[in-house]
């Protein structure tokens, strides 16, 4: 069974979903991501779904779950690159992903995460490269 790669940069994790999500892949991603957040002490998770054309309620809930889990583990989730059609579908499904931060593209998402890293940097003595 293939898995979606999770990349680490600094204190953040980057997930790019390039294939059509099926339910088992989504569950696997959720598990992998949870353990990676703890492993790397990540403060931010960036999920790029710009290649995702079809989103059903299950995937929508997965995104919400990931955000909730990350929040418990003290990491912010940013979903970036959602297509207009996908956004409309999610809203019509009644999933407005209130717990998730969103950004138009990866660049904007990075800015959000960097801002978060900067603020947490001042609280903790964790060193983060610029």
């Amino acid at each position: 069974m293939d898995r979606i790669p999770i990349l680490k940069f600094g204190n953040a994790l980057l997930v790019t979903i390039q294939v059509d999500m099926h339910d088992r892949l989504a569950t696997a991603l959720e598990e992998d991501l949870t353990s990676k957040i703890v492993e790397h002490n990540a403060k931010g998770v960036l999920i790029d779904i710009s290649a995702l054309e079809i989103v059903d309620s299950f995937i929508g809930r997965m995104l919400d779950n990931i955000a909730a889990v990350s929040r418990i583990l003290d990491a912010d989730t940013v979903v970036v690159g959602m297509r207009p059609a996908v956004a409309i579908t999610l809203v019509e499904l009644g999933l407005s992903l209130t717990g998730v931060k969103t950004a138009l593209n990866v660049e904007r998402g990075m800015e959000l995460i960097k801002a978060r890293l900067r603020t947490s940097d001042t609280d903790e003595e964790d060193d983060v490269e610029e």
Partner: peptide, 12 residues
């Protein structure tokens, strides 16, 4: 509200 929610999902 739907429109607002959809725009938010797009990061706006």
């Amino acid at each position: 509200l739907k429109t607002v929610a959809a725009a938010r999902l797009m990061g706006a």
